[in-house]
Protein backbone atom coordinates (compact mmCIF):
# COMPACT_ATOMS: atom_id res chain seq x y z
CA UNK A 1 0.00 0.00 0.00
CA UNK A 2 1.38 3.38 -1.00
CA UNK A 3 1.49 6.29 1.41
CA UNK A 4 -1.80 8.15 1.52
CA UNK A 5 -1.84 11.76 0.28
CA UNK A 6 -4.46 12.91 2.76
CA UNK A 7 -5.02 11.26 6.11
CA UNK A 8 -7.95 12.39 8.23
CA UNK A 9 -7.93 10.82 11.65
CA UNK A 10 -10.74 11.06 14.20
CA UNK A 11 -11.88 14.47 12.99
CA UNK A 12 -14.61 15.91 15.22
CA UNK A 13 -16.34 19.26 14.90
CA UNK A 14 -18.94 20.70 17.25
CA UNK A 15 -21.04 23.86 16.98
CA UNK A 16 -22.04 24.59 20.56
CA UNK A 17 -23.80 21.42 21.70
CA UNK A 18 -24.35 20.13 18.17
CA UNK A 19 -21.83 17.63 16.83
CA UNK A 20 -21.54 18.31 13.10
CA UNK A 21 -18.77 15.78 12.44
CA UNK A 22 -18.06 12.86 14.69
CA UNK A 23 -14.81 10.92 14.63
CA UNK A 24 -14.31 10.89 10.85
CA UNK A 25 -11.30 8.94 9.58
CA UNK A 26 -10.38 8.76 5.94
CA UNK A 27 -7.33 8.00 3.79
CA UNK A 28 -7.01 9.22 0.23
CA UNK A 29 -4.36 7.77 -2.09
CA UNK A 30 -2.42 9.95 -4.57
CA UNK A 31 -4.25 10.16 -7.87
CA UNK A 32 -7.49 8.81 -6.45
CA UNK A 33 -10.98 10.02 -7.43
CA UNK A 34 -13.12 9.96 -4.34
CA UNK A 35 -16.83 10.73 -4.22
CA UNK A 36 -18.31 12.07 -1.00
CA UNK A 37 -22.08 11.82 -0.66
CA UNK A 38 -24.63 12.33 2.05
CA UNK A 39 -28.05 13.89 2.59
CA UNK A 40 -28.39 17.64 3.18
CA UNK A 41 -26.97 18.65 6.53
CA UNK A 42 -24.90 15.50 6.86
CA UNK A 43 -21.71 17.52 7.28
CA UNK A 44 -20.15 17.42 3.82
CA UNK A 45 -19.52 21.14 3.59
CA UNK A 46 -18.39 21.29 7.20
CA UNK A 47 -15.92 18.53 6.32
CA UNK A 48 -14.58 20.60 3.42
CA UNK A 49 -14.28 23.66 5.64
CA UNK A 50 -12.49 21.67 8.34
CA UNK A 51 -9.84 20.13 6.13
CA UNK A 52 -9.25 23.37 4.23
CA UNK A 53 -8.81 25.30 7.47
CA UNK A 54 -11.81 27.61 7.22
CA UNK A 55 -13.16 26.13 10.45
CA UNK A 56 -11.06 25.00 13.43
CA UNK A 57 -11.54 21.37 14.45
CA UNK A 58 -12.26 20.17 17.97
CA UNK A 59 -10.46 16.84 17.85
CA UNK A 60 -8.52 14.64 15.47
CA UNK A 61 -5.96 15.52 12.83
CA UNK A 62 -5.57 16.23 9.14
CA UNK A 63 -2.31 15.29 7.44
CA UNK A 64 -1.32 16.10 3.87
CA UNK A 65 1.57 14.07 2.51
CA UNK A 66 2.96 13.50 5.99
CA UNK A 67 2.57 17.10 7.11
CA UNK A 68 0.13 17.91 9.92
CA UNK A 69 -2.22 20.70 8.83
CA UNK A 70 -3.95 21.30 12.17
CA UNK A 71 -3.89 24.93 13.13
CA UNK A 72 -2.50 26.13 9.82
CA UNK A 73 -4.53 28.93 8.21
CA UNK A 74 -6.28 28.25 4.90
CA UNK A 75 -3.77 30.06 2.75
CA UNK A 76 -0.89 27.91 3.99
CA UNK A 77 -2.84 24.75 3.26
CA UNK A 78 -3.46 26.01 -0.24
CA UNK A 79 0.25 26.65 -0.65
CA UNK A 80 1.00 23.12 0.55
CA UNK A 81 -1.20 21.79 -2.22
CA UNK A 82 -4.70 21.46 -0.82
CA UNK A 83 -7.11 23.55 -2.91
CA UNK A 84 -10.86 23.78 -2.69
CA UNK A 85 -13.62 25.24 -4.79
CA UNK A 86 -16.66 26.81 -3.19
CA UNK A 87 -20.17 25.43 -3.40
CA UNK A 88 -21.48 28.77 -4.60
CA UNK A 89 -18.87 30.32 -6.88
CA UNK A 90 -17.06 33.16 -5.12
CA UNK A 91 -15.11 34.95 -7.83
CA UNK A 92 -13.21 38.20 -7.25
CA UNK A 93 -15.85 40.45 -8.78
CA UNK A 94 -13.73 43.51 -9.51
CA UNK A 95 -10.96 41.56 -11.26
CA UNK A 96 -11.06 40.14 -14.77
CA UNK A 97 -11.37 36.41 -15.36
CA UNK A 98 -7.63 36.18 -16.08
CA UNK A 99 -6.78 38.23 -13.00
CA UNK A 100 -8.93 35.88 -10.92
CA UNK A 101 -6.44 33.15 -11.81
CA UNK A 102 -3.45 35.43 -11.31
CA UNK A 103 -4.20 35.78 -7.58
CA UNK A 104 -3.59 32.11 -6.71
CA UNK A 105 -0.75 31.96 -9.22
CA UNK A 106 1.02 34.84 -7.48
CA UNK A 107 0.33 33.64 -3.97
CA UNK A 108 0.17 29.86 -4.15
CA UNK A 109 1.84 29.12 -7.47
CA UNK A 110 3.85 26.05 -6.54
CA UNK A 111 6.01 26.06 -9.60
CA UNK A 112 3.22 25.06 -11.95
CA UNK A 113 4.03 25.81 -15.56
CA UNK A 114 0.53 26.54 -16.87
CA UNK A 115 -0.15 30.15 -17.71
CA UNK A 116 -3.46 31.90 -17.17
CA UNK A 117 -4.28 31.54 -20.87
CA UNK A 118 -3.51 27.82 -20.89
CA UNK A 119 -5.65 27.21 -17.83
CA UNK A 120 -8.54 29.19 -19.25
CA UNK A 121 -8.21 27.31 -22.51
CA UNK A 122 -8.30 24.01 -20.67
CA UNK A 123 -11.51 24.80 -18.79
CA UNK A 124 -13.11 26.28 -21.89
CA UNK A 125 -13.00 29.94 -20.96
CA UNK A 126 -10.45 30.79 -23.61
CA UNK A 127 -12.20 33.82 -25.05
CA UNK A 128 -13.30 35.28 -21.72
CA UNK A 129 -9.98 36.33 -20.19
CA UNK A 130 -10.72 40.06 -20.19
CA UNK A 131 -14.33 39.81 -19.00
CA UNK A 132 -15.60 40.31 -15.46
CA UNK A 133 -17.05 37.35 -13.55
CA UNK A 134 -20.38 39.19 -13.42
CA UNK A 135 -20.76 38.69 -17.18
CA UNK A 136 -20.30 34.92 -17.06
CA UNK A 137 -23.07 32.31 -17.20
CA UNK A 138 -23.67 29.86 -14.33
CA UNK A 139 -21.64 27.08 -15.89
CA UNK A 140 -18.82 29.44 -16.86
CA UNK A 141 -18.73 30.67 -13.27
CA UNK A 142 -18.31 27.05 -12.08
CA UNK A 143 -15.49 26.59 -14.55
CA UNK A 144 -13.82 29.75 -13.31
CA UNK A 145 -14.18 28.51 -9.74
CA UNK A 146 -12.44 25.24 -10.68
CA UNK A 147 -9.83 27.03 -12.77
CA UNK A 148 -8.99 29.30 -9.87
CA UNK A 149 -8.55 26.31 -7.58
CA UNK A 150 -6.34 24.71 -10.25
CA UNK A 151 -4.27 27.87 -10.61
CA UNK A 152 -2.81 27.11 -7.18
CA UNK A 153 -1.34 23.92 -8.75
CA UNK A 154 -2.83 21.69 -6.07
CA UNK A 155 -2.06 18.04 -5.40
CA UNK A 156 -5.49 17.55 -3.89
CA UNK A 157 -8.61 19.34 -5.09
CA UNK A 158 -11.80 19.32 -3.05
CA UNK A 159 -14.66 20.23 -5.38
CA UNK A 160 -17.66 21.19 -3.26
CA UNK A 161 -20.85 20.62 -5.28
CA UNK A 162 -19.31 21.97 -8.46
CA UNK A 163 -22.32 20.87 -10.52
CA UNK A 164 -25.37 21.78 -8.45
CA UNK A 165 -28.02 23.53 -10.50
CA UNK A 166 -26.46 22.79 -13.88
CA UNK A 167 -28.19 21.14 -16.85
CA UNK A 168 -27.36 17.59 -17.95
CA UNK A 169 -24.99 18.63 -20.68
CA UNK A 170 -23.31 21.15 -18.41
CA UNK A 171 -22.80 18.46 -15.77
CA UNK A 172 -21.07 16.39 -18.43
CA UNK A 173 -18.81 19.30 -19.31
CA UNK A 174 -17.68 19.76 -15.71
CA UNK A 175 -17.33 16.01 -15.29
CA UNK A 176 -15.08 15.78 -18.33
CA UNK A 177 -13.06 18.65 -16.97
CA UNK A 178 -12.56 16.97 -13.60
CA UNK A 179 -11.55 13.70 -15.25
CA UNK A 180 -9.02 15.57 -17.35
CA UNK A 181 -7.55 17.18 -14.25
CA UNK A 182 -7.31 13.79 -12.60
CA UNK A 183 -5.51 12.48 -15.68
CA UNK A 184 -2.90 15.15 -15.10
CA UNK A 185 -2.24 13.67 -11.66
CA UNK A 186 -4.49 15.75 -9.39
CA UNK A 187 -6.20 13.82 -6.62
CA UNK A 188 -9.84 14.86 -6.45
CA UNK A 189 -12.52 14.68 -3.80
CA UNK A 190 -15.90 15.31 -5.41
CA UNK A 191 -18.72 16.32 -3.10
CA UNK A 192 -21.90 15.97 -5.04
CA UNK A 193 -25.61 15.29 -4.94
CA UNK A 194 -26.05 14.32 -8.57
CA UNK A 195 -25.66 10.54 -8.33
CA UNK A 196 -25.16 10.05 -12.06
CA UNK A 197 -22.10 12.30 -11.91
CA UNK A 198 -20.75 10.80 -8.70
CA UNK A 199 -21.07 7.25 -10.01
CA UNK A 200 -19.43 8.15 -13.31
CA UNK A 201 -16.57 9.92 -11.56
CA UNK A 202 -15.71 8.03 -8.41
CA UNK A 203 -13.33 5.14 -7.96
CA UNK A 204 -14.36 5.04 -4.34
CA UNK A 205 -17.36 6.39 -2.51
CA UNK A 206 -17.73 7.66 1.06
CA UNK A 207 -21.11 8.38 2.61
CA UNK A 208 -21.66 10.76 5.54
CA UNK A 209 -24.90 10.72 7.49
CA UNK A 210 -25.53 13.04 10.43
CA UNK A 211 -21.82 13.75 10.82
CA UNK A 212 -20.72 10.09 10.79
CA UNK A 213 -19.03 8.09 8.10
CA UNK A 214 -21.36 5.16 7.49
CA UNK A 215 -19.87 3.69 4.35
CA UNK A 216 -16.55 3.73 2.51
CA UNK A 217 -15.65 1.54 -0.44
CA UNK A 218 -16.49 0.51 -3.98
CA UNK A 219 -19.23 2.84 -5.33
CA UNK A 220 -21.48 -0.06 -6.39
CA UNK A 221 -21.26 -1.60 -2.92
CA UNK A 222 -21.80 1.68 -1.11
CA UNK A 223 -25.03 2.54 -2.91
CA UNK A 224 -26.41 -0.89 -2.09
CA UNK A 225 -25.42 -0.58 1.56
CA UNK A 226 -28.51 -0.83 3.81
CA UNK A 227 -27.52 2.12 6.00
CA UNK A 228 -26.95 4.34 2.97
CA UNK A 229 -30.30 3.35 1.46
CA UNK A 230 -31.99 4.00 4.77
CA UNK A 231 -30.45 7.46 5.03
CA UNK A 232 -31.54 8.39 1.54
CA UNK A 233 -34.92 6.69 1.34
CA UNK A 234 -35.97 6.76 4.96
CA UNK A 235 -37.00 3.70 6.99
Amino acid sequence: MTDALLVVDGLTKRFGGFTALSDISLRIQPGERLGLIGPNGSGKSTFTNCISGTLPIDAGSVTLDGRRLDGLPSHQRTRLGLARSFQLPRPFGSLTVAENLRVPMLYAGRGGTDTEAELLEMVGLGGKAAQRPGDLTQVEMRKLELARAMAASPRLLVADEAMAGLSNSEVDEILALLLRLNDQGVTIVLIEHIMRAVMAFSQRLVCLVAGRKIADGDPQDVIRNDDVLKAYLGE
Binding site: T78, L95, R102, V103, A108
Partner: peptide
Protein backbone atom coordinates in the same frame (compact mmCIF):
# COMPACT_ATOMS: atom_id res chain seq x y z
CA UNK B 1 1.37 41.26 -6.19
CA UNK B 2 0.29 43.07 -3.03
CA UNK B 3 -2.35 44.98 -4.99
CA UNK B 4 -3.88 41.80 -6.40
CA UNK B 5 -3.91 40.28 -2.93
CA UNK B 6 -5.66 43.32 -1.46
CA UNK B 7 -8.21 43.36 -4.28
CA UNK B 8 -8.93 39.69 -3.62
CA UNK B 9 -9.44 40.48 0.09
CA UNK B 10 -11.81 43.32 -0.80
CA UNK B 11 -13.87 41.13 -3.13
CA UNK B 12 -14.06 37.97 -1.02
CA UNK B 13 -11.84 37.30 1.95
CA UNK B 14 -12.55 33.57 2.28
CA UNK B 15 -11.89 33.01 -1.41
CA UNK B 16 -8.68 35.04 -1.07
CA UNK B 17 -7.49 32.75 1.74
CA UNK B 18 -8.40 29.72 -0.34
CA UNK B 19 -6.29 31.17 -3.16
CA UNK B 20 -3.26 31.28 -0.90
CA UNK B 21 -3.44 34.99 0.03
CA UNK B 22 -2.17 35.57 3.61
CA UNK B 23 -5.07 37.92 4.30
Amino acid sequence: KLGFGLAAIRDDEAAAEASGVPT
